[in-house]
């Protein structure tokens, strides 16, 4: 038996064997339910993971806030700038409307 004959027999046998395979009529319905169930589970898993991450981040933040001393800044290190009373310019600031220019030393003409 040469290879051409083997190929012909193989094709014939594969065709015959494939012809015996029958699919069930409700295969589509079962597959469709399975697709949807898996998609729903995937989305629920994603939501659950996101919720857990959010809760963990919240917990870490609350723990850090709770652990620090009341006076110590947690988020920003720099002290907050002094707020001047309304209408008064902060000390050392140039009066409004004055053009910035070279500062002359005291006693200069």
């Amino acid at each position: 038996m040469n290879e051409t004959e083997s190929v012909a027999r193989l094709r014939e046998a594969l065709g015959a064997m494939a012809g015996t395979v029958r699919t069930s009529p409700d295969a589509y319905e079962r597959a469709l339910l399975d697709w949807r169930r898996r998609e729903r589970r995937r989305r629920l898993t994603g939501l659950a993971v996101a919720a857990v991450l959010l809760a963990a981040a919240d917990g870490v933040g609350l723990w850090a806030l709770n652990r620090s001393a009341p006076a110590a800044p947690v988020v920003f290190d720099a002290p907050a700038p002094a707020v001047a009373p309304s209408g008064a310019a902060p000390s050392g600031a140039a009066p409004s409307g004055a053009a910035p220019g070279p500062v002359s030393p005291p006693g200069a003409p």
Binding site: R9, L10, E12, A13, L14, A16, M17, T20
Partner: peptide, 19 residues
């Protein structure tokens, strides 16, 4: 599968077994 065993001809079954 029992159905395949019954339906397949002898020469086809030889090829399938060899496969």
């Amino acid at each position: 599968s029992a159905e395949q065993e019954v339906v397949l001809r002898e020469d086809h079954r030889e090829v399938v077994d060899a496969l």
